[in-house]
Simulated scan of single mutants.
Amino acid sequence: MNFETIKFGINGGIATLILNRPQVMNALNGRMRAEITRALTTLPPEVRCVVITGSGKAFCSGQDLTDAGAALDLEATLRDEYEPMLHAVRDCPAPVIAAVNGVAAGAGANLALIADVVIAAESASFIQAFSRIGLVPDAGGTWAVPRAIGAARAMGMMLFAEPVPARLAADWGLIWQALPDGEFAEGVATRALQLAEGPTGAYLAIREAVAASLDNDLDEQLKLEARLQGRAGQSNDFREGVTAFLEKRKPRFSGR
């Protein structure tokens, strides 16, 4: 596939998607949104993990405010361009790591936060910047942020639009991990390989269960767990995991 605004490659079952407009801090325009969606919805079966990161000093500064088409009708842009992109991340057939290498602002922050796991460099920060220009947080921010850190902190982030450093974001539970900058690339690579070698079907079932738990009552969640576990128990990966445990060796998961 040929792309203009992202770099995309696959190596060893790991797909790496790099937002590649460093001259504007990887701001999202219509073409970039379409290319992210296309890359994630056409993954070949051998992909077992996806890493999304940014080129240059930023992860993503959010909506490109010079993108004239988006400014004409924000509601239509969100519905027709952002929603497919966010669903492509959330419904990806492999676990997704957002590797936040620098500032993640506005829709760029929320693109990262909808991933399965967020790992950030300590120099990175997260900004719900929308109120600075008289807008409401979008791109899933009002869904993801309160669920991660609670309403009080979410309101503070959104009303004051101040940067939250990566280390504080990790302490709050907004992200999984903040790593020293010098350890960031190796740390992301290690985690990506761990997921790529793991039981993909189980990972996707975990995603489904955790997402549902935020709305289910206990009985509903227990029923969902039983259904998902029944399905996982029929998988080749479960059989391999048990066999490897009994043989005292590392399992060789196939993702099926």
Rank of each mutant, 00 (worst) to 15 (best):
Val96Gln: 05
Val136Met: 09
Pro84Ile: 13
Gly102Pro: 11
Thr53Cys: 13
Ala76Phe: 09
Ala154Gly: 00
Ala105Thr: 11
Ala144Gln: 07
Phe126Ala: 08
Gly156Val: 12
Val47Arg: 05
Glu83Arg: 13
Gly69Ala: 15
Ala144Arg: 07
Asp73Met: 02
Thr142Asn: 06
Gly106Ile: 06
Ala71Thr: 10
Ala70Asp: 10
Ala151Gln: 12
Thr41Glu: 09
Phe59His: 03
Leu65Met: 13
Leu74Trp: 06
Val103Gln: 07
Val50Lys: 02
Thr53Gly: 02
Val118Ala: 01
Arg153Glu: 15
Met155Leu: 14
Ala129Gly: 15
Gln63Leu: 15
Gly156Arg: 14
Leu65Ser: 07
Arg38Lys: 15
Ala129Ile: 11
Pro45Asp: 08
Ala107Thr: 11
Gly134Val: 11
Phe126Asn: 10
Ile149Leu: 06
Val96Lys: 03
Ala98Pro: 02
Leu113Arg: 03
Pro45Tyr: 03
Gly102His: 07
Gly134Thr: 11
Ala120Arg: 03
Pro93Val: 12
Ala124Glu: 04
Ala58Phe: 14
Val117Gln: 05
Asp80Leu: 14
Gly102Ile: 12
Asp64Glu: 11
Arg90Trp: 00
Pro45Arg: 12
Met85Arg: 07
Gly106Ala: 12
Pro93Cys: 04
Ala98Cys: 04
Ala139Arg: 00
Ala88Asn: 07
Leu40Thr: 04
Gly108Asn: 03
Ala151Cys: 02
Leu43Trp: 02
Ile119Met: 15
Met155Arg: 10
Leu74Ser: 04
Ala109Cys: 15
Arg38Glu: 11
Ile119Pro: 00
Gly106Asn: 15
Glu83Ser: 09
Phe130Arg: 00
Phe59Arg: 00
Ala39Ser: 09
Thr77Asn: 12
Thr42Tyr: 05
Gly150Leu: 11
Gly62Ile: 10
Gly69Met: 10
Thr66Pro: 00
Met155Gln: 04
Ala70Ile: 08
Gly56Thr: 10
Leu65Gly: 14
Gly54Arg: 05
Met155His: 05
Cys60Pro: 01
Val51Asp: 06
